[in-house]
Simulated assay, not measured.
Amino acid sequence: MSKETLAWLNANVLIGFTDQREHAWHYRAALQGNEPNHYPGAIPIDDVKRRLFSWVPISSPLFVSGSAPGTFDEIPGRQAIRRSDTGHVMGIFTDSYEPHQYDVWLLDTIGRLLDADLSIGSAGLLRDGAVAWVSVEVPETIKTPEGVSFRPHLFGATSFDGSLATTFKRAVTNIVCDNTMAAGLAEHGQQIKIKHSRHSMLRLDEARDALNIVYEIADDFAAEVRRLCEITVTDKQWAGFLDAHAELPEQPGRSRSMAERKRETLAQLWNHDMRVAPWRGTAYGVVQAVNTYVHHEQTVRGAERAERNMLRAVTGGVEELDLATLTTLDKVLGGLALAA
Results as ranks from 00 to 15, higher is better:
Ala68Ser: 09
Thr299Trp: 06
Ala157Gly: 12
Asp19Tyr: 04
Thr328Arg: 06
Leu269His: 02
Ala123Glu: 08
Cys177Ser: 09
Ile217Pro: 05
Leu323Arg: 15
Ile45Arg: 07
Val134Glu: 08
His295Met: 13
Asn212Met: 12
Gly121Tyr: 02
Asn271Gln: 04
Phe155Ala: 01
Pro145Arg: 09
Pro278Val: 12
Trp55Val: 12
Arg208Met: 10
Ala246Asp: 12
Thr299Glu: 12
Ile213Ala: 08
Lys49Gln: 11
Ser67Asp: 11
Ala7Phe: 03
Ser255Tyr: 09
Arg203Asn: 12
Ile175Asn: 03
Leu323Ile: 13
His23Leu: 15
Gly77Trp: 08
Tyr102Glu: 02
Val13His: 00
Ile43Gly: 03
Asp103Met: 09
Pro40Phe: 10
Arg256Glu: 11
Asp235Gln: 12
Trp55Asn: 11
Trp55Glu: 15
Gln20Pro: 03
Ser60Pro: 07
Pro57Asp: 15
Arg151Pro: 00
Pro145Leu: 13
Leu204Lys: 09
Thr109Phe: 06
His153Phe: 15
Val172Asp: 03
Phe17Gly: 00
Arg301Ala: 12
Leu204Val: 09
Asp205Pro: 00
Arg280Glu: 08
Glu146Tyr: 11
Glu250Ser: 13
Ala207Pro: 00
Ala157Arg: 00
Phe168Tyr: 15
Ala223Val: 09
Trp55Phe: 14
Gly317Glu: 07
Ala116Leu: 09
Gly184Asn: 08
Ser65Val: 14
Tyr97Ala: 05
Leu323Tyr: 15
Ser163Arg: 10
Val172Ser: 00
Pro57Gln: 14
Arg170Gly: 00
Thr328Lys: 01
Asp115Trp: 02
Gly70Gln: 03
Trp133Met: 08
Tyr27His: 09
Lys143Val: 15
Ile213Gly: 08
Val138His: 07
Thr315Ile: 05
Asp103Ile: 09
Glu264Trp: 04
Pro99Ile: 07
Arg170Pro: 05
Ile15His: 08
Cys229Ala: 15
Ala186Glu: 11
Asn212Ser: 13
Ser67Trp: 05
Leu269Ser: 06
Trp8Lys: 02
Asp115Asn: 15
Leu333Gln: 03
Leu326Asn: 04
Val300Lys: 10
Arg151Phe: 08
Ala182Trp: 01
Arg227Gln: 12
Ser159Ile: 01
Val131Gln: 02
Thr292Pro: 06
Leu107Asp: 06
Arg51His: 08
Ser149His: 10
Ala182Phe: 01
Trp133Thr: 03
Val318Lys: 07
Ala7Ile: 01
Leu9Asn: 01
Ala80Trp: 03
Phe72Tyr: 04
Glu206Tyr: 10
Asp95His: 13
Thr144Phe: 07
Pro249Asn: 14
Val176Pro: 07
Arg208Asn: 02
Thr94Gly: 15
Arg170Asp: 05
Ala7Gln: 07
Ala277Pro: 06
Ala80Ser: 14
Ser257Phe: 02
Ile58His: 12
Leu52Met: 02
Leu211Lys: 00
Leu9Glu: 06
Pro99Thr: 07
Thr265Trp: 05
Phe241Met: 00
Arg261His: 01
Ser84Met: 13
Ala130Gln: 02
Ser84Pro: 13
Tyr215Trp: 10
Val56His: 15
Asp46Gln: 11
Leu266Glu: 03
Gln20Asp: 08
Lys143Thr: 15
His23Ser: 04
Arg21His: 07
Glu98Cys: 09
Gly147Cys: 11
